[in-house]
């Protein structure tokens, strides 16, 4: 920043908030609101409420991602390298491979349901609280 004349305040704040909202200046309601009193995100980021929320989200989504990826990759490896095991019949013409395949469907919808319940109870209320606080101090 070696400009001889410093840009007007408004322009500088648009520059700082960067590419997202300010580029649509005139038409965007939030752009005018934010240029007056942008919340201090660094303070929020360091606050206890926020670090707790972040920890909670990460403690759920990372292990769950590892879990379903491991189960999927394990299944793929079985399908690629253990043909005989997968061809083992279980009921009539239905074999281990078909059952494991359908089980992938079941785990997918089960994980989806668990995540939604978790997010509704353990994430959304806390995220709402933080957002509400920010919006209150802004006004």
């Amino acid at each position: 920043m070696t400009n001889a004349t410093p840009p007007p305040l408004r322009a500088r704040s648009a520059e700082r908030t960067g590419n997202a909202p300010a580029s649509f200046g005139g038409i965007d309601k939030s752009a005018t609101r934010r240029s007056t009193a942008a919340p201090d995100f660094t303070v929020i980021q360091r606050s206890e409420e926020f670090t707790r929320l972040r920890r909670r989200v990460r403690w759920f989504v990372f292990p769950m991602t590892i879990l379903f990826l491991a189960w999927y990759i394990g299944y793929v490896l079985l399908a690629a390298y253990a043909h005989d095991f997968m061809a083992e019949p279980v009921v009539g013409k239905v074999n281990v491979g078909l059952l494991l395949g359908v089980l992938q469907f079941v785990t997918t919808v089960v994980i989806t349901t668990i995540y939604v319940r978790f997010a509704n109870r353990r994430i959304d209320p806390y995220a709402d609280e933080i957002r509400q606080n920010v919006e209150d101090t802004e006004q």
Partner: peptide, 20 residues
């Protein structure tokens, strides 16, 4: 930019300032 990182993280998890 640390400020932008803070803004992104807070916004992504809480929805503060998200476009509606």
């Amino acid at each position: 930019d640390d400020d932008r990182q803070a803004e992104m993280e807070v916004r992504s998890l809480t929805g503060v300032g998200a476009h509606s």
